[in-house]
Nucleic acid binder design. Structure first.
Length: 481
DNA sequence: ATGTGC
């Protein structure tokens, strides 16, 4: 029997080891979520398991079908003799979450007119319309993709906003993803131009920027308070990625690695599953480009937060302040050390959540574990969690969100605008204010398109991977299209 | 997810 080290309760109901024809798949989900899984996610796992030399593969409870690989996959190879797969990483490289803590209480935003005013101001500073353009002509894209946040002009890094490098609360704030920069020559001018224009924009789909109110989980109050959270605190949560830059990297990497597959006679039943040995020069080029997209993605989220700060200060005054709690990704691949050996870990729709004491935590979070940021669907809570020691066997991967259960077209057929409006509390004083005149174009993002995030959180907790520190309930939501 | 694509 597997037991949760912290609570001593049995984990069998939250974890399964499946023997598929091509190999072993580890699945983390409670009974109900496991039973609801589509057979296609197992068919997809069976394709992925055919890639040689795989050390480990698992699914999180929010797993659902993607292109080539399911969203909710952790796949690990040894660094020596391992493989990299652009399909497992996916096209929105570096997509992830960022949370800033503000110095205001939800009661200060009780007035719906004030929330509307804030959303209007944010809309001016943060372009969210179709083909949105950022307002950052003073930023050099080549500096961003090379150096991440270190490539930003100083004015975009105000005091108190991002802690000083030496005391940074986030490893992505203090580090850059270094790589062989000669690979950047691969992209034509139009890719550079588009990516430059898009810098600081939110993107569509499930991406969002949200003002939320904190509800601390009593069992984690010590951790929450040590991170600077308080009950009713307004936080800014951002879900975005590397926009068209990551897309270009993904496309280029896939087309180059398909050539390698042909040369080596590799392949599975799914032609959309692209992979190659890490030792191949084309694979190395892809990994370098992937790091440039991580630099882009983290800077993009930083600039979105910067725009929201400017807008909030315009409406609420310059006493309004927000500081970085954390920024972390859920679509990427990189090297990690575990038990003395180096692994190449892919996470697609999976979040790394390190427990207290793990050496990869940035120093300020060493004693507690770092915040793991999990978005909910529109109108529902998002969560700030912290990893547990029980996550070790899963390379400390947890869920990345609610997880889609219905296609966009199926959701549009099923869900009426009226139901969606009710889910957002439209017409009540607690209405989640949004930046769109009507909900019509956003129905495919309604909570009914997604699994119940509370069940996902319960699964992760029950399996001993992570525990909730705070629920963050939406007050206002900015969505792109 | 993507200024989506035969």
């Amino acid at each position: 029997m597997i037991v949760n080290e912290r609570t001593g309760e049995a984990l069998d109901a939250y974890y399964r080891e499946l023997e598929l024809p091509a190999g072993k798949l580890h699945v983390y989900a409670n009974e109900e979520l496991f039973r609801a899984l589509d057979y296609q996610v197992f068919a997809m796992a069976n394709n992925n398991l055919q890639i040689p030399n795989l050390t480990y593969m698992s699914y999180t409870p929010d797993v659902h079908v993607g292109v080539g690989t399911c969203i909710g996959t952790t796949a690990v190879w040894p660094s020596e003799g391992g493989f990299v797969s652009p399909s497992i990483v996916g096209s929105d490289i570096g997509c992830g979450m960022r949370v800033h803590l503000t110095n205001i209480h939800r009661d200060e935003l009780k007035d719906i007119k004030l929330r509307r005013k804030l959303v209007k101001a944010i809309d001016r500073y943060l372009p969210a319309e179709e083909h949105a353009r950022g307002h950052y002509s003073d930023i050099r894209l080549e500096h961003i993709v090379r150096k991440g946040l270190h490539g930003l002009p100083h004015k975009y890094v105000p005091d108190h906003y991002t802690p000083k490098k030496s005391t940074s609360l986030s490893h992505v704030e203090s580090s850059r993803y270094s790589f062989d920069e000669s690979v950047l020559d691969r992209f034509p001018d139009r890719v550079w131009h588009r990516a430059h224009r898009q810098l600081g924009t939110l993107g569509g789909g499930n991406h969002f920027a949200e003002l939320q109110a904190v509800e601390i989980d009593e069992r984690s109050r010590d951790v929450a308070e040590s991170w600077g959270l308080f009950d009713g605190q307004v936080v800014v949560m951002i879900h975005s990625g590397s926009r068209a830059w990551g897309g270009a990297v993904s496309q280029y990497g896939s087309s180059e690695l398909v050539k390698v597959m042909r040369k080596l006679g590799l392949g599975t039943a799914d032609p959309k599953l692209v992979y190659a040995p890490l030792a191949e020069p084309a694979a190395q080029d892809y990994v370098h480009l992937l790091y440039s997209a991580l630099n882009y993605a983290v800077t993009n989220r930083h600039l979105i937060a910067y725009a929201i700060r400017e807008a909030c200060r315009e409406v609420l005054g310059t006493a309004f302040e927000m500081r970085t709690l954390y920024d972390l990704m859920h679509n990427y691949a990189w090297e990690e050390q575990q038990e003395g050996s180096v692994h190449f870990v892919h996470r697609k729709g999976a979040t790394r959540a390190l427990p207290a004491g793990h050496p990869d935590n940035p120093a300020p979070y060493l004693a507690t574990g770092h915040p793991a940021l999990i978005p909910g669907s529109m109108g529902t809570a998002s969560y700030i969690m912290v990893g547990q020691a029980g996550g070790r066997d899963n390379y400390y991967s947890i869920c990345h969100g609610a997880g889609r259960i219905r296609s966009r077209t199926a959701t549009k057929k099923l869900v009426s605008v009226k139901d969606f409006a009710a889910a957002l509390g439209v017409g009540t004083e607690n209405e989640v204010v949004i930046n769109h005149r009507t909900l019509e174009g956003l129905v495919d993002e309604s909570p009914q398109a997604y699994k119940d995030v509370d069940q996902i959180i319960e699964s992760v907790k029950g399996a001993g991977l992570a525990i909730p520190v705070a629920a963050c309930r939406p007050l206002a939501t900015i969505k792109g299209v």
